[in-house]
Amino acid sequence: MSHRAPVLLPLTTDRLTLRAHESDDAGRLHGIYSQPEVARYLLDEPWTEADATRHVSERLAKTGLDDESHALALVIEHEGTPVGDVLLWLTDTEHRIAEIGWVLDPAHGGQGLAREAVGEVLRIAFEHYRLHRVTAQMDARNDASARLAAALGMRQEAHFRQDWWNKGEWTDTLVFALLFGDR
């Protein structure tokens, strides 16, 4: 990708602040990712405190698609409290293709916060980074994420049956995508 000015953080929406991860987010994100209902559809088991420290440490370096990490990791804050995070990472630098993923604390679900946060990151993906395509892959049982992807205009392109062995069982994967021209 050609070098451009970095995304100016934090990003703000009507109700949210999206900011870079900070070291002290480990405790807050542990509270979210340690919940079995959050980890159910993720590749990781519920986070321990050590997992949270390691993951946040890794995310500290993910400050933009043009930097060495080729990734942008943002904490979602609502009323000053971290309620989840959104990650965007390049999967094909030359052709400007990326993947997006998100997690929201179930205690804050049903309010449109994930839609607001992920929608803003998709806006940055296409308007700032000028990406050609952004995909989202998820466990097919994750109805909330599938509804969110569809609500954001992402098209379901695939339903892979029993393609992933995860946590002792075969799971299906849904793939959604949004193209620059779809917006």
Rank of each mutant, 00 (worst) to 15 (best):
L87H: 09
W89G: 06
L65W: 04
I97R: 07
E68C: 15
L65M: 13
L88D: 01
P82T: 00
D85F: 03
G64H: 03
I76F: 02
V75L: 08
P82N: 14
E79R: 11
D66C: 05
L60C: 07
H70N: 05
E94S: 15
E68D: 08
L88P: 00
L90K: 07
E79L: 03
H78K: 14
E94N: 15
G80C: 07
R96A: 15
E68W: 03
L72D: 01
L74M: 08
E77A: 11
A71T: 03
V86T: 00
T63M: 03
E94R: 13
L88G: 03
T63H: 08
G64T: 00
T91E: 14
G64Q: 06
T91S: 11
P82Q: 06
H78T: 12
L90V: 13
L88W: 01
S69H: 05
A71V: 04
T93L: 13
G84V: 06
D85H: 13
G84L: 01
L72N: 04
L60I: 11
T91F: 15
E77S: 09
L72P: 01
L74R: 01
L72A: 07
W89F: 09
G64L: 09
K62L: 05
V86W: 05
G80A: 15
D92I: 09
S69T: 09
D67L: 07
K62Q: 11
R96L: 11
R96T: 10
L87Q: 10
V86R: 05
E94C: 06
V75D: 03
D92L: 14
G80S: 12
H70S: 02
L72V: 02
E94D: 02
T91Q: 04
D67N: 09
A73E: 04
H78M: 04
L90Q: 02
K62P: 01
I76C: 11
E77Q: 14
S69Y: 05
T81E: 15
L90H: 02
V86A: 13
G84A: 04
L60T: 07
L90T: 12
D85S: 10
T91P: 10
L87V: 09
R96G: 08
L87F: 14
V83G: 10
R96V: 10
K62R: 14
D67T: 01
D85M: 08
D92Q: 13
T91A: 13
L90I: 05
E77Y: 02
I97C: 10
P82F: 04
G64I: 00
D85Q: 08
T91C: 10
V83P: 01
H70Q: 11
H70T: 10
T91I: 12
L90E: 02
H70P: 02
I76D: 01
D85T: 09
H78F: 13
L88C: 04
A73G: 14
T93R: 05
L74K: 01
A73H: 03
E77C: 14
I76P: 01
K62F: 10
D67W: 15
T93W: 07
H78W: 06
T93A: 11
T93M: 13
P82V: 00
L88Y: 02
V83C: 13
H70V: 08
D92F: 11
T81L: 15
D66L: 09
L90C: 09
I97S: 09
E79C: 03
T63K: 15
A71K: 01
L74Q: 02
